[in-house]
């Protein structure tokens, strides 16, 4: 008899203790739609299966988590609160990408830096080649036209003749 009450009591306590403001129970609303649930579930990954977003994960566990989201939405909790709840309970792996804090910033800074390094190396290469070409031009006879793509060259020629 007392067990269901027990559960309700626990949930109320849980939500009250987790809520930033103590009014969620009053902010009851109609049952949130599947779309509203999925909008949040899409941002989360299934904590037990590998690399499966929560909104399309077919396991029983995921169904329960979606119900939990629905419940929390009905309690009037915000998207950030729900996501934070999931991270606290199941770890950072439920997020679609690493949380942007502390050392994790290397996951966001390294990719653009890698590209910029590549560009820098390329730019330096060009600079060197230019210097070398200039020296060579200064020393040697006038440079012969580098006619490699004869086909293109011939085309250009013909096009010029037409004008």
């Amino acid at each position: 008899m007392s067990k269901p009450f027990h559960i309700v009591l626990f949930l109320v306590l849980l939500f009250v203790s987790l809520a930033a403001h103590p009014s969620p129970v009053l902010a009851q609303q109609a049952t949130p739609s599947d779309d509203e649930v999925n909008a949040i579930a899409r941002q989360l990954f299934c904590p037990v299966c590998e690399n499966t977003p929560l909104d399309v994960c077919p396991t029983e566990a995921c169904r329960q988590w979606r119900e939990l989201i629905r419940q929390m939405l009905a309690e009037g909790r915000s998207e950030e609160e729900i996501i934070r709840y999931f991270v606290d309970n199941y770890g950072a792996r439920v997020l679609a990408e690493p949380p942007r804090q502390g050392v994790n910033w290397i996951f966001y800074l390294v990719p653009p830096l890698a590209f910029l390094t590549g560009l820098f190396l390329l730019g330096r290469g060009f600079y060197d080649w230019r210097q070398k070409a200039r020296q060579a031009a200064a020393q040697a006879s006038p440079p012969s036209p580098a006619a490699a793509d004869e086909y293109a060259a011939r085309l250009e020629e013909e096009l010029r003749k037409r004008r």
């Binding site: 027990h6 559960i7 626990f10 904590p47 329960q64 939990l68 309970n89 199941y90």
Partner: peptide, 28 residues
């Protein structure tokens, strides 16, 4: 392990479990 409190508690009630139980917060 990776469970929702509501379903977890119903399970404990259903099987009449009495020993200490708790959620694995953050799967730590």
């Amino acid at each position: 392990y990776v469970d929702t409190p509501l379903e977890g508690l119903s399970y404990l009630v259903k099987f009449d479990i009495t020993y200490p139980n708790g959620p694995d917060m953050g799967s730590r």
